[in-house]
Design a protein around this nucleic acid. Structure first.
Length: 249
DNA sequence: AGTGCTTGTGCTTATGATTA
DNA sequence: TAATCATAAGCACAAGCACT
């Protein structure tokens, strides 16, 4: 396992930290399950417990007892598959056992409710809660206007540097997205103006690779901060638009 | 003491990429 | 085009910390 995480996934495969953590979680969950259901102590487990039977029981346990969705179940199985494939090269003598694990299928289906969106009136209400007369307010307005404008992921917006914003026409923003991919996203002129104004008041004004959105201490604003702000403005909207409270935003 | 966050942990899910 | 697999990133929540 140590070699799997430290060498195989990290160095050899060059996998993302997110993935490695996810695999770690899957393995930990599986080992705990096997330990509990076979009255064997964690430290006494060995490769012989990594059987198709145990993994199948584990998957059922995830759905039945932990009430996991199919996507999660499949993600766990994917992690165990990857581990099994790694083990094939490490311990070929267990090939048959491992192949049976790899034979366990993924599950289909599980489409759930559609993702909601905000009506124009709700968007307006939300933005109206922001007091643009302060530096913080102007930052928040620019932040949410940009998010609404681009539909970018939070992290993409938070990673923006001054140099990523094109304030001259064509107005656009350079987003560093999921999977280490970069893309350009057009923005409205009004949004560009907001961003430009924000750049003026930002601590690193003048330094091109300074962050666009900073926290009160001049550091990097995080997604947790954004959630905090969003919750705040949603709560403030309650009086005007009760529908905002019912939605998952 | 309150505000405005950040950190860390644990957990789940959506989306992208590749293969059949 | 669907099936399969890989991977990024979402959410909640408790706790902590730096400034007013």
């Amino acid at each position: 396992m140590e070699k799997f995480f430290r060498e195989y996934l990290l160095t050899l495969r060059g996998m993302s930290l997110h993935t490695i953590r996810s695999y770690r979680d899957a393995l930990v969950l599986f080992l705990r399950f096997v330990s509990n259901h076979n009255s064997r102590r964690l430290e006494d487990l060995s490769l012989d417990v990594f059987t198709a039977e145990h993994v199948a029981q584990f998957l059922t346990f995830l759905e039945a007892d932990r009430h996991n969705g199919i996507a999660t179940r499949n993600a766990r199985l994917a992690a165990l598959h990857t581990f099994a494939r790694f083990l094939v090269s490490e311990s070929p003598e267990h090939l048959a056992q491992l192949q049976r694990v790899l034979g366990l299928p993924f599950k289909r289906g599980g489409r759930n409710a559609p993702i909601e969106y905000l009506e124009p009136a709700e968007v307006e209400t939300l933005l109206r809660q922001i007091d643009s007369s302060t530096d913080t307010g102007r930052r928040d307005y620019a932040l949410f206007a940009l998010m609404l404008n681009t539909g970018a992921r939070v992290q993409e917006v938070l990673d923006l540097k001054l140099s990523d914003v094109h304030t001259e026409p064509p107005h656009q923003v350079r987003l560093h997205g999921k999977g280490g991919k970069v893309r350009l996203c057009p923005i409205w002129a009004a949004t560009a103006a907001r961003l430009q104004a924000l750049a003026q008041q930002t601590p690193g004004n003048g330094i091109t690779d300074a962050l666009l959105f900073t926290n009160r201490r001049g550091g990097k604003l995080t997604r947790f901060g954004v959630r905090y702000l969003l919750n705040k403005y949603i709560a403030a909207s309650a009086a005007t638009a009760s529908t905002l409270l019912e939605k998952r935003i």
